[in-house]
Design a protein around this nucleic acid. Structure first.
Lengths: 329, 329
DNA sequence: TTGAAAGCGCTAACAT
DNA sequence: ATGTTAGCGCTTTCAA
């Protein structure tokens, strides 16, 4: 900026004003400065600008990861969510800082905020850490979490309506003639718990008995899913449909079922959750509950920016949509 | 920092030194300052620190996107690559700034570098923009690109050995008895072009005639892939195997083939490229060429950091591995 | 071992 | 319409 000032024969303040498009500066000088800036390939030093303005147009997107399972960023749904956040933030002129943080040290998620690196935090995935997140929010960290809405929650969440989603899928399977629907997923995770609640509600509506043996606690791990399928078949549990807590889980389960000689959907209807890109191209194509991922990114960003504008954290739920495909035909 | 100084009864310089672990500071003061910092939940303002030190521990990861097709960040391979970069950068104490940029304005990719936001750039995907990238490199922008190595290239690339990969898959299909192997992909993209070259080499090795009608120029778009499959079947082209330039393409193609009544692999063997997570769980599970994605992130980061240390840009190729699964059985 | 002071690149009163 | 000056939070000479 000093260089430009010298070359343009004005002071740095004028350059600053010219570049900022201030009306206080003569049109001719403005053009001269702009031209010079362009030819010198000048771009403003955002760090210095932020320092001075105490402003910040960077949002930290934090991905919790479990060091025990070494389960890194890999679920296509979360990966796509990051893509969608990148789009939403870019559109609004924000930059996106991505980091991963140990789920057991979620308080570290706030670091980039407290260090002045980021204006706010988007946490991709709630896990079991409701309490820790509440603490962050109480500390005043601008925070939005992708996940389920919980009672007594001081932070904002954006998530799909998991109860409704669980209900939609279960109703659909019942409509298709299923009477004994197995549910697979880790219900200790709030989002999954809510989907399970929807499942139970739909069963009750249809006056179907909910058999606890049909609910299988299964984490998001290939081996565990395959093992759960084997057990389900081996222990002689009677079931005619399977509702999996995510598409990835459903695809893995279908793979295992087919390897064990079961045909989907002829012998067994299967439903997933998420509607990841591949769900449509899987074979059989996967009936699933769509979580609107583009909207997810936008709403997460919108909810956060509202907080930055001083609004109280407000959660939002996105509508889910049942997507009918072959796996439940 | 001023607060800590006041509370500790020392100057800010001493606090700065204490926090930086300078040996110039009394052990007792150091501990007192550290304790105070912890209790105040203090974290250093990285922006100010960077400004002062003219250092920078942020790397910009830039994702080119095509505004025409509105094809955003969606291929699982690239998404996973971002995950892997996040891991590699975090491990080395760097932060990751993610942005997308119009493929037609790749020069903008350098902005975060020139604005002092980032110490260097990782570009995820080379597209057709060899020339533009060279310009950036010549301008002195520390830059690493995921893609193919090209003659006369001033920037560093990290990529898998696409020729070898194409060869591995083609040899394998030939070994399995295929004689007329169709190739599907956009060979104008350098990486795909090299895979195609490997394909041709393997055919030549086996003294098989390469029929141009078997090479189909198909972009990475669902509709185009499905259309290509339909055409391939409809125009009576004789082929007994299909090699797709990516797993996503292979899965989409298999879906289309099955919908049109062809059985994979019984009537037609299919191979993919990438080995995305889902390839193992697809049905039939997908024979593919693995691009080692964890290594990819690490090597991209390593190649970039070398440049930051003053080394000349050096490209690297990663070994591919043929992964045998059911789709080619 | 510590403190005072200058300056990283920028913006915004305040003065002209 | 422009320039002067102070200061954002930090590090580092230089002096004590």
């Amino acid at each position: 900026m000093a260089d430009i000032a010298r070359l343009a024969g004005v002071s740095v303040s004028t350059v600053s004003r010219a570049l900022a498009g201030s009306s206080l500066v003569n049109e001719a000088t403005r053009l001269r400065v702009a031209e010079l800036a362009r030819s010198l390939n000048y771009t403003i030093n955002v760090g210095a600008q932020n320092l001075r303005l105490k402003q910040n147009r960077t949002i930290a997107v934090v991905v919790p990861y479990d060091p025990a399972t070494r389960q890194h960023l890999s679920d296509p749904f979360f990966l796509s969510l990051i893509g969608s956040l990148a789009d939403a933030l870019t559109d609004r002129g924000y930059e996106m800082l991505v980091s991963r943080v140990d789920v057991n040290r979620l308080d570290l998620a706030a670091q980039s905020y407290e260090a002045g690196r980021a204006a706010g935090i988007v946490l991709v995935g709630q896990w079991h850490h409701h309490e820790q997140l509440n603490e962050l929010a109480v500390r005043g960290v601008p925070l939005v979490v992708w996940g389920a809405q919980l009672p007594g929650q001081a932070y904002a969440t954006v998530g799909s309506d998991n109860v409704a989603g669980g209900q939609q899928m279960t109703r659909h399977l019942i409509e298709r003639g299923a009477r004994r629907i197995a549910f697979m997923g880790d219900t200790a995770l709030e989002e999954i718990g809510q989907r399970h609640r929807g499942y139970l509600q739909a069963l009750a509506e249809a006056r179907l008995q909910a058999d606890p043996a049909l609910t299988r606690q299964v984490p998001f791990e290939t081996a565990a899913i395959e093992h759960a399928v084997e057990t389900l078949l081996a222990d002689g549990t009677d079931f005619d449909a399977l509702f999996c807590a995510s598409d990835l889980m459903a695809m893995t389960a279908i793979g295992a079922l087919q390897r064990l000689g079961r045909r989907v959907p002829q012998q067994l209807r299967v439903g997933g959750y998420d509607d990841i890109a591949l769900a449509a191209h899987y074979h059989p194509s996967l009936t699933t509950v769509r979580q609107p991922i583009e909207a997810a990114g936008e709403q997460l960003v919108a909810a956060l920016l509202e907080q930055l504008d001083g609004a109280r954290p407000a959660s939002r739920q996105l509508l889910t949509e049942l997507v009918l495909r072959d796996s439940s035909r």
